[in-house]
Design a protein around this nucleic acid. Structure first.
Lengths: 147, 147
DNA sequence: CACGATTTAATCGTATACGATTCAAATTAT
DNA sequence: ATAATTTGAATCGTATACGATTAAATCGTG
């Protein structure tokens, strides 16, 4: 009984680790021509939905802390995807706003990504099933942290 | 139709990314007292099963390239978990062998990890379902790469 | 046997990640 | 209103990651 769980733990942590790695590689290859990395693309996805938000809000949306986000957003600013502006009302906040480049290339990028995903022949049901399981695990992992 | 897939893509890439992150954090907190990181633990798991293998073989087992593995294994050597030895028969190969410390602490570490995982209350069936889906995705991602 | 092709590690450059610390601005409490 | 606390970003130190390049050893074929 205990042994079963132990073996599953091992298999699961490898499965999550390696699948995430492969996933990253797929996105990396597709995004490279646009000069984007996978995490940067996630930031764009978040901002395409909610433009002009603070670093803190953005961090919560993509699940990243300031230590990772600050230098990453600066790099994206240098490349012209967005700009950072210190808030006037509350100078602790920094608003992140998309530049024209990000709006203009949105369709091209997302279509190219979807094109590549289609090549994997993943059925709709598979998607939904996997996502449901991941979210289940995700919420249980976060619950535990709060104890 | 296309829209459905596009939305799912977005959700799935976030789900994979964030779940992997939470997973890493859980392991990180458990492993920190032992002076281990999550990827280093995966290396130990691989070596506990197959001791004395080459860097290349180890890289295949954990899904990491030499650029990541070389410095990581060196750090683990400095901490006394293992040692690197240039092969005599074929000097291109470097064998990685576990030190006593790794054997001695094996049970303590794995038991502590399992203890923490149990706290998440993940049912056996959930494990199996999730893992099956992850492996499905994993193999489809790798298939695509080979085209 | 020689020499080009291949294999295996190491190294380099760039980009994440995260916890801890620092610092300035804003809010709260006295 | 000023001190104490809290908050939001930036910074620092350490450890991954990965593709590309380099270097050394071995192999394969003429």
């Amino acid at each position: 009984m205990k042994k079963d769980f132990s073996t599953l733990d091992k298999q699961l942590c490898f499965a999550v680790y390696e699948t995430a790695g492969e996933f990253t590689k797929l996105y990396t290859s597709v995004l490279k021509p646009f000069g984007l990395t996978y995490p940067q693309y996630l930031v764009l996805l978040a901002l395409w939905e909610h433009d002009r938000i603070t670093m803190k809000e953005l961090g919560e949306l993509v699940g990243l802390g300031t230590g990772t986000l600050t230098p990453m957003i600066s790099r994206m600013q240098e490349k012209g995807w967005l700009r950072k502006e210190r808030s006037v009302e509350d100078e602790r906040n920094v608003h992140v706003t998309l530049e024209k480049k990000a709006h203009n290339e949105k369709n091209t990028i997302t279509e190219r990504v979807n094109e590549e995903i289609q090549l994997c022949n993943i059925a709709l049901s598979e998607y939904e099933e996997l996502m449901a399981r991941l979210n289940e695990l995700h919420s249980k992992l976060r619950e535990r942290t709060k104890l």
